[in-house]
C-alpha cells in the first residue's frame, strides 16, 4: 500500500531551490490532503536541525522526508552534507527509543530534473509505505 492510502501523515522539509514556485505548486496537494501533509521550505537543507525532525515526529508525523540537493551541488557547498549527517544522527536517536529509523528519510534531488515540489511529493506518496502509523501519534489523539 502506498503512503497516501496508508493514511500516513507526511512532513516534507525541502530545500527551496528545487522549485521556485513551491508555494503555489504545493497547494493542490495541501487541499487534497489537508493536514495529512505538511511542507516546510528551508533556505538550504543544511539548515535542518535534529530538533526539527524530532519535533515533526513528536507532533504527529508518521514519515518525515528531507529533500536536499545532491552533495556537491549545494549552493552553500556543505548544506547537503550537513543535512545527511544530522538526519543520520536523529535516526540513531529515535532508534534508541524504539522508533524506526526509516521514519526519517533523506532524498537527494537533482535540481536539473525539473520536478516541482508537488510532483516530488506525489512520487513519495506513491511509494510503498515502509512504516505504519506512528505509535506516538496514537497517543496524541487520545490525549486531545
Amino acid at each position: 500500500m502506498n503512503q497516501k492510502d496508508a493514511g500516513l501523515d507526511i512532513t516534507i522539509f525541502f530545500c527551496q531551490r528545487f522549485d521556485k514556485d513551491q508555494d503555489t505548486n504545493r497547494r493542490a496537494l495541501e487541499k487534497e490532503l489537508g493536514s495529512k501533509i505538511k511542507f516546510f521550505p528551508l533556505p538550504c537543507s543544511g539548515r535542518i536541525e535534529p530538533l526539527h525532525l524530532m519535533r515533526a515526529l513528536e507532533t504527529g508525523a508518521d514519515k518525515v522526508y528531507l529533500l536536499a540537493c545532491q552533495e556537491g551541488a549545494c549552493r552553500y557547498l556543505e548544506g547537503s552534507i550537513r543535512a545527511r549527517k544530522r538526519l543520520a544522527y536523529t535516526q540513531g536517536l529515535i532508534e534508541e527509543i524504539g522508533l524506526e529509523g526509516e521514519r526519517l528519510e533523506l532524498i537527494n534531488v537533482t535540481p536539473e530534473n525539473h520536478m516541482t515540489i508537488d510532483e516530488l511529493a506525489r512520487e513519495l506518496l506513491a511509494r510503498e509505505a515502509t512504516v505504519s502509523l506512528s505509535p506516538i501519534k496514537a497517543v496524541i489523539s487520545n490525549e486531545y
Binding site: L51, E58, I97, I140
Partner: peptide, 18 residues
C-alpha cells in the same frame, strides 16, 4: 540543543509506551 533532543525523545518514548 541536546536538552531539546533528549526531552523530545523522552516524550515520544513515554507516548509510545502509553
Amino acid at each position: 540543543k541536546e536538552v531539546g533532543l533528549l526531552a523530545s525523545a523522552l516524550r515520544m518514548d513515554a507516548r509510545m509506551e502509553g
